[in-house]
Design a protein around this nucleic acid. Sequence first.
DNA 1: TGGCTATCGATATAACTTTATCGAATGAAT
DNA 2: ATTCATTCGATAAAGTTATATCGATAGCCA
Lengths: 216, 216
Amino acid sequence: MGPSSIPQASLRRLPQYHYYLLELEAKGISRVSCTMIGRDLSCVPVQVRKDLQYTGITGKPKTGYSVTELIQAIETFLGWNRVNEAFLVGVGNLGTAILGHERFSKYGLRIVAAFDTDPGKIGKRVHGKVVLPLAKLGNLAQRISIHLGIITTPAEVAQSVVDEMVGAGIQAIWNFAPVRLKVPEHIYVHNEDLYASLASLSCKLATRFGVPIQED
Amino acid sequence: MGPSSIPQASLRRLPQYHYYLLELEAKGISRVSCTMIGRDLSCVPVQVRKDLQYTGITGKPKTGYSVTELIQAIETFLGWNRVNEAFLVGVGNLGTAILGHERFSKYGLRIVAAFDTDPGKIGKRVHGKVVLPLAKLGNLAQRISIHLGIITTPAEVAQSVVDEMVGAGIQAIWNFAPVRLKVPEHIYVHNEDLYASLASLSCKLATRFGVPIQED
DNA sequence: TGGCTATCGATATAACTTTATCGAATGAAT
DNA sequence: ATTCATTCGATAAAGTTATATCGATAGCCA
């Protein structure tokens, strides 16, 4: 019953199962099998079973799993029933979008303050969160013991923001800036790399509509 | 010289190399080795070499690769020196953020129009792009032959938007809505799943700050 | 000119992830 | 009660990705 060593790929799929299970629950369906999940989410049942096993849940032959228990198991495993308080830095378009994403709060993510260096933004409220001057981050993070930092700044300043976060005791970073951040060993960085996604897409489109290339 | 079959993981790393190489170029550095890239981006040189080989570039012993050639090779491989015209649907916070992300245009992504169903948004301009009623999407996409659709709508409506896109001949979809979309075989969907990322993060934080769990 | 070292490219090994297979258990139908 | 189909859980096989190793080559320095 602990996320000791789950493949990243399985970890990415768990939220999909979770969302799907919520739908089932809303429809009043109480039990579900891997076969059923696999059919609806178009993946093979055995993979679903393996993924779910990491959460520690156990099913029954012939009937499968209890939907409610499964939702619980995933939430517990992912830490979604605990609260993680976070700071967000960079109240541009993307930062604003994330601040406004109220569904995150259902999964334990509570963004308690936003930071920026633009004097025009400081003091304002964005989706209910006050925008503070970046200079105050270090002190505040230490005082109220924040563990998670969200970076939605331009690439150029991301590293300096991270350095400040690390100095203030932040342990994990959700990075939306397109740079590979340098951090000490013990800091966990999750990069949300839109350019990587764009690469996938344009690469795919290039093979389909670009200069004809032999695909073998 | 074609993206026939590259691992997704390598594909994700190429843009990171690309960004790093641009920095080198800006500094006036003309040659680079895998050892150097690996040191600066903290990964093993042999992996860098393998990734770069997919682009078809060839280096020289002792000196490595030409920075300029390497940048070119990556851009060509990813299709970043071609233009992909796209439609975006859902001009909420996230949609607005993406419309404003002018750096995408450097990588061939040209969002030519945005769509929404909110009458309050239709007709307005967001970051220079006019917001059109969703009903016009099908017709327009066919007429000007759009291949890429970007979905930044709420989860509930994403599937119906996709159906419309597919009907209009759109071939690839960049999906920011947290749902697994159902599409015909030949359509390529790239999911930008923020909840998967959140899962990684909260899972990590849970092991670190939650109930003490034996990690072995 | 002749070693010497750094680096590439290729091949081989190891680690990891996915998919297949099989026995056991459960519930439903006969 | 017995059979049958379905599903789980575990183990095995296949496939994929990452890392290590090795010879060849290019530049550097004596």
